[in-house]
Amino acid sequence: MFYPFDHYYLILVVPALLFAAWAQAQVSGAYNRYSRVRVSRGMTGAMAARRILDDNGLTGVRVERVAGKLSDHYDPGERVVRLSAGVYDSDSVASLGVAAHECGHAVQHATHYAPLTFRNAIIPITNFGSKLSIPLIIVGLFLSGTLVDIGLLLFSLVAVFQLVTLPVEFNASSRALATLENGNFLDRRELEGARKVLRAAALTYVAALLVSVAQLMRLILLFGNRRRD
């Protein structure tokens, strides 16, 4: 929401959005660059994912192709690693980095990695809070300051979710790089390329946290002032 003379948006949110745009550009640039660098061993993303999962005893986790670009993800409910066509079928450095990262999430799930378990547990609450927070704040401005406080509390869950996401994603990338190195998937030069791709991807999660925190601070300052008025 944008209000006339909402200088908090300009001061807090706009810089965070600019950082997010820059982070996304870094991901696209790194991915595009290293998607053109073929791995010397000729292994595709799908082949790497299957081997990583099997080596970790996760033979029951499927690897499937999914539509879209950079739509790769691990689905804990279905127990499936979904790789975009550009990763699934490609034998590029970027593809193996992305595939190994998603397999890292599968390993986290199998080993009950605490931050992932906590993040999955709060997803329903976070979704509920993100949808209801703004309406509650608006209604609260006319009826009760308590509703404003509840709305702000619900919105803060989005920031909590983004905060918990950081160790989950960083750990998945660390697992991926260790696996690619120790399993001899990539040589030293190729491994450095995969590291740059995953490092760039990590920036987008930092950006998401900054945006959510900036929005939360803006709402607190904006609606807190209106309540006092």
Rank of each mutant, 00 (worst) to 15 (best):
G57R: 09
V160W: 15
S84I: 11
G77I: 09
S144W: 10
A178P: 05
D72G: 07
G193L: 04
F223C: 03
M1H: 14
N184W: 15
P4G: 06
T117N: 14
A94Q: 00
G68K: 09
A23D: 06
A21N: 08
G57W: 06
L12N: 03
S92Y: 03
V39D: 13
D149Y: 14
Q215W: 10
R188Q: 06
V37K: 14
Y74F: 15
Y113H: 10
S130F: 05
A67N: 12
S133K: 05
L153N: 04
A200M: 14
Y113T: 02
T59M: 10
R199Y: 07
R175V: 01
D72C: 11
T44L: 09
R119G: 06
F155K: 06
A67Q: 15
V211I: 12
R38K: 14
A94V: 05
A30T: 04
D54W: 13
L12V: 03
R226G: 00
L96W: 08
L147N: 01
V27I: 11
S174D: 09
T165R: 12
V139P: 07
L136M: 07
A23V: 07
V63N: 10
A106V: 05
V37I: 14
L10M: 01
A214N: 04
G57N: 14
A172N: 07
T44H: 10
V39M: 03
G183S: 01
G57Y: 10
